[in-house]
Amino acid sequence: MPDLLAEVLGQPGLGWLIGAALVAGTVRGFAGFGTALIFAPVAAQILGPFEVLTVILVMDLLGTLPNVARAWPMADRADLARLMAGSAICLPLGLLALGYVAPEVFRTTVGVVALAMVACLVLGLRYQGRLGPGLVLGTGGASGLLGGVSGLAGPPVILLYMASPNPAGVVRASTMIYLFGYDLLLGAVLAVKGVLVAAPVLTGLVLALPNVLGNLFGAWLFRPEFERGYRAVAYIIITASALSALRIWE
């Protein structure tokens, strides 16, 4: 274990990972989303695809624990059950596809998905109809598939909830609880596939501390009346992270 820890602490790019974990946690704390959208584009430049998924899984599970208990009473539990059911069906398909994706393609995909998410939110491109049970189930499936391929399970659910008539606090809580449940599901599937290995798990544990601190700070900052401002800050940070993964300057 000491040798493994020394390997993790000595890996190139660890400082960037720590910084990304802290910023991602802060945004997650005040916006209810953003961990993977901010962290994954940075991590994809340093780690392999399955390593990125594992690190996000461990870091995010521990990082959001301080806020999950408070979010649970406010969440829409019927929708959460449907979202998780859809994800459970489609996540294994996404992970199967990821096994055939080269690291550079994964990095580019992560950056493009994150940018597309910001564009949809800024332009107001979201579902306008009734949020029925079938739509919620299908959204969970889309999130599971996208999460398996790119590590970014949040965009479909976030876009769905942005069209929800629920108050900002309920939307934030439901999104946060879904992503926490998705992480538990992802961990189970990765374990069954035999790709949940020690080094990225330990890296996730190391990064959990700055992520927890970020989540606590972001939650302390959160005020429902400033919802639009929080979103604007989140969009700017996500865009910067996504552009770094695309390496458009090369």
Rank of each mutant, 00 (worst) to 15 (best):
D3L: 13
L5N: 10
E7I: 12
L9Q: 12
G10T: 08
Q11K: 14
G13P: 05
I18N: 06
A21D: 02
V23F: 03
V23Y: 05
R28A: 02
F30S: 00
A31I: 02
F33W: 01
T35F: 09
I38Q: 02
I38W: 03
A43K: 01
L47Y: 06
E51K: 08
L53G: 03
L57Q: 04
V58R: 00
L61W: 04
L61H: 04
R70H: 11
R70L: 08
P73S: 10
D79S: 14
G86M: 09
G86K: 06
S87A: 15
A88C: 08
I89Y: 09
L93F: 12
A97M: 11
L98Y: 03
G99D: 05
A102W: 09
P103D: 01
E104W: 12
C120H: 10
G124N: 11
Y127R: 12
G138T: 14
G138H: 10
G140E: 07
G140R: 11
G151F: 00
P155M: 06
P156V: 03
I158C: 05
P167F: 00
R172Y: 01
T175D: 05
Y178K: 06
F180S: 08
L190A: 05
V192M: 13
A199Q: 10
V206M: 07
L207K: 01
G214F: 03
N215W: 05
N215E: 07
L216K: 09
L221I: 14
L221V: 15
R223T: 12
E225L: 11
E227C: 08
G229R: 13
I236L: 15
I238L: 01
L246Y: 01
I248N: 08
I248P: 10
I248V: 15
